[in-house]
Design a protein around this nucleic acid. Structure first.
Lengths: 240, 240
DNA sequence: TTAGTTGTGCTACTTAAGTAGTACTATTCA
DNA sequence: TGAATAGTACTACTTAAGTAGCACAACTAA
C-alpha cells in the first residue's frame, strides 16, 4: 500500500485519530502504513472464525463493527464493544498473542486497513518506543469493560438503557448517534439484556415523550428529561 | 533501595514472576528496582483515596489486596480484582494517566514495593522497549474483565459460585486456595451478588457434600461433584 | 469477663427481569 | 407481486435474585 497516498486521502482523519499511529513523524507513519492493505466488508458480514484476528490486525476507516459473544448453550448474545472509525482490533490478540473468543459483525459497509499480525509485531519490536501508543488505548478498553461490570451489577435495565441513550447523544447536534438505527435486540445486547425487556422500557420513555421510536429508528426528543429520570433512579437507590 | 540485595532476598520469586520485570538483565533489573522502596500495610488497611495510586505504582511481594468499587447511593460493593504476589497496580493509571475510581483493601498483612509514578514513567520513556512487558499483563486484565461481563450476563449466581470455587482449587494439592478464608459477603462481592444469596447456594452445596463450611472457612470436599454440577447447569441452559 | 462486633443460617416476602406467545407491520428479495 | 423475514408492541406467566429481619455462634477488645 502506498502509505503517502493513503495518508492524504479521505481517510486521513481516521488515521490521525488512531491510537497506533499517534504522534508519528511522516516517515515512520508511511513505514507502518506500508504493512497494511485496504479491505472492504459489506454490511452484515459476520466473522465467526477467531483465527482471522489472530493472524491480522485491523484499523477501521469507516463503518461500525461490533465485537460480541454468544453463549453456546442458550444462544444468548452480548455486545462487548461497538467499534467505529479509528478503532483497532483485536487488541486482546495483539497484547498477549492468545486467541480471543469473540465474534465480529459489520453493522455498516466497512472499510478497514489490515496488516499481518507477525509483521506488525516485528515492526513494533524494531521500534519499541511505539508500544507506548498502545497503552492509553488499552487503558480505554479496560475502563470500558470495568464500567460494563459495575453497571451490570449495580444498576437495573432501565437505568442502563437511560445511560446508553444519554452517552450516545452528540453534545453539539443534540441528536442520538451511533445507536439510533439499531433494533431493540441490538440495543438489548449492548446492555446485557433481552429484546422484550428493552422494548418494555422504551415504551415507557416513549409515553413520557423523551424519545420517539419507529422501526429501527430511535430519536431522543428530550435529553434533559432523560437526565432527570436518571437522577431520580439514583435517588431511588438511596438507603434510608 | 538496594536492588541487588532485595533481588536475592526472600521475595525473589515475587519479582521474577512480575510482568514489569520480565526478561530483564541483572543491570536493568537493579536499575528499575532502585526506583522502588519497601512498604508494609497491615491487614484490613483500606485505601479510599484514588490519588494515592495516581502518584505511586505498586508491586505486591506478599499478601492479598482487593480492588473494589462501591455504588455511592446503595452502598453495594463489587470486587473487581483479587490481587496477589507479583501483581502490580494500578495498571489503569499507569496506562493512560487518568485517575481510577476504585478502592483498595488489604486482606492480609501485605508487603509491597512502591515507586513514584513519574519516575517509573520517565524510566520507561528512557527504556521504551520495556513497555512491551506491560502488554501481556494488560491483556490478562482485559480478559479477566471481559470474562466477568459475560459471566454476569450469561450465567446465574449458582453457576458463578461453582466457577469461582472450581477455578480456585489448586490442581496439585486439590484444595481451595486464595478464597478459602473469606466470609460469605466477600465471596458474594467476587461474583456480583449478595451475602444472603451466596449463603443460600453454599448451603445447597454443603447438603450434597461437595463443600464443607464453617466461620470464614471453606473447603472443597468433592471437586468432581462440583465439576459435574457445573456441567448440569450448562445443559439446563440448552434451548430445546 | 463481658459487651460489642462480625459472621452464619434461616424464613418470609417483593420485585425486576426473563420467557412464551401472538398479532400486526415494515421490509426484502425471488 | 407476493411470500418470507425481521422488527415491534403487547399480555400473561415464571422465577431467581434481592431484601428484611431475626436468632444464634464465634470471635475481639476493653
Amino acid at each position: 500500500m502506498k502509505g503517502e497516498h493513503l495518508f492524504r486521502s479521505k481517510y486521513k482523519s481516521a488515521l490521525t485519530n488512531c491510537a497506533l499511529l499517534n504522534n508519528l513523524d511522516e516517515e515512520t507513519n508511511n513505514e507502518i502504513l506500508s504493512l497494511f492493505h485496504h479491505e472492504k466488508w459489506p454490511k452484515n458480514t459476520c466473522f465467526l472464525n477467531h483465527e482471522k484476528f489472530f493472524f491480522h490486525f485491523y484499523i477501521i476507516l469507516s463503518g461500525r463493527v461490533k465485537m460480541y459473544q454468544v453463549e453456546p448453550n442458550s444462544g444468548k448474545e452480548l455486545t462487548l464493544f461497538l467499534l467505529t472509525k479509528s478503532d483497532v482490533f483485536d487488541l486482546f490478540c495483539l497484547l498477549d498473542g492468545d486467541k480471543h473468543q469473540v465474534y465480529y459483525e459489520c453493522l455498516d459497509n466497512v472499510k478497514v486497513l489490515a496488516a499481518p499480525m507477525t509483521e506488525l509485531r516485528s515492526w513494533l519490536n524494531r521500534h519499541p518506543e511505539h508500544y507506548k501508543n498502545l497503552l492509553p488505548y488499552a487503558g480505554k478498553q479496560l475502563r470500558s469493560l470495568e464500567n460494563y461490570v459495575s453497571d451490570i451489577t449495580f444498576t437495573d435495565i432501565s437505568t442502563r438503557l437511560l445511560k446508553l441513550l444519554i452517552r450516545n447523544v452528540n453534545d453539539k447536534s443534540n441528536t442520538l448517534e451511533l445507536i439510533n438505527d439499531l433494533s431493540n435486540k441490538e440495543l438489548a445486547y449492548l446492555i446485557g439484556s433481552t429484546r422484550a425487556v428493552v422494548n418494555r422500557h422504551l415504551q415507557r420513555l416513549k409515553q413520557n415523550g423523551s424519545i420517539k421510536i419507529s422501526r429501527k429508528r430511535l430519536q431522543v426528543k428530550n435529553l434533559s428529561l432523560l437526565l432527570h429520570l436518571l437522577e431520580n433512579q439514583k435517588l431511588a437507590n438511596l438507603k434510608i
